[in-house]
Design a protein around this nucleic acid. Structure first.
Lengths: 113, 113
DNA sequence: TCCCCATATGTTGGCTGCCAATAGATAGCA
DNA sequence: TGCTATCTATTGGCAGCCAACATATGGGGA
């Protein structure tokens, strides 16, 4: 699948993979890849600006973590982030229902004539 | 729902509403609106360029229809269009499965320890 | 010792694709 | 005489994702 298809749903994906535990950017890419069965391969140019935006919005909080000499920026869901995730899930269900109903309409019941 | 969300799925929607019978542009907007329960309100600036593109691709064929003094441009699915619709439906299922699996992962079965 | 790859964070430019706004025409109704 | 509905169509703009690039550490193999 062309990864461009996540357009408009990226925020939900990021919030979702951060739900079980905080992760740093590189691990987020791996987590999305794993949970999608390898179908989604997000790029750094996609997620880093998104993570910054989500932090600015107060949905994530970040903290630097030292691993040897290396540094990691670890992102965690805030309370607002958990609420936003719930909203994203609702919106996703509505979205699939709407598009699905146009793409695969259930035939109208035929009145017994 | 913000109508911008159809991004990337518009072609499938247009092909789908043309499946039962040919329609003209204005009626296509109405059909999408009806089949989506009023949630999707596509604009002319969205569908007319898309219809032209689909015709250039050979997925639709158009013919002018006279209604009194009025003229309508009627779009019909071609054979290639029906094939493309089937592909769009498959792609949609894959898409929802992939995004869904990231957004709402099924918890991994815990080994009995 | 040197190089490459994995790990890790980040920026910039560009393109795709939908929308808002605009334009213009006919027809019916108040 | 307008106002609204029906009908087609174009243009400019912008959001959002990606490709490419830039930078740095650390480990493994030749």
């Amino acid at each position: 699948m062309r990864a461009d298809a996540v357009r408009g749903h990226l925020d939900g994906l990021l919030l979702a993979v951060l739900e079980p535990a905080p992760l740093h950017g590189y691990a987020i890419i791996a987590a999305v890849q794993r949970r999608s069965g390898g179908a989604l391969d997000l790029r750094t140019g996609t997620i880093y600006p998104a993570l910054n935006r989500l932090e600015r919005l107060g949905l994530l909080s970040s903290s630097w973590e030292a691993v040897g000499e290396r540094r990691r920026r670890c992102y965690a869901l805030t309370d607002a982030g958990r609420a936003a995730l719930a909203q994203e899930r609702t919106a996703w269900q509505e979205f699939t229902a709407v598009i699905g109903s146009v793409l695969n309409p259930s035939p109208p019941p035929r009145p017994a004539s």
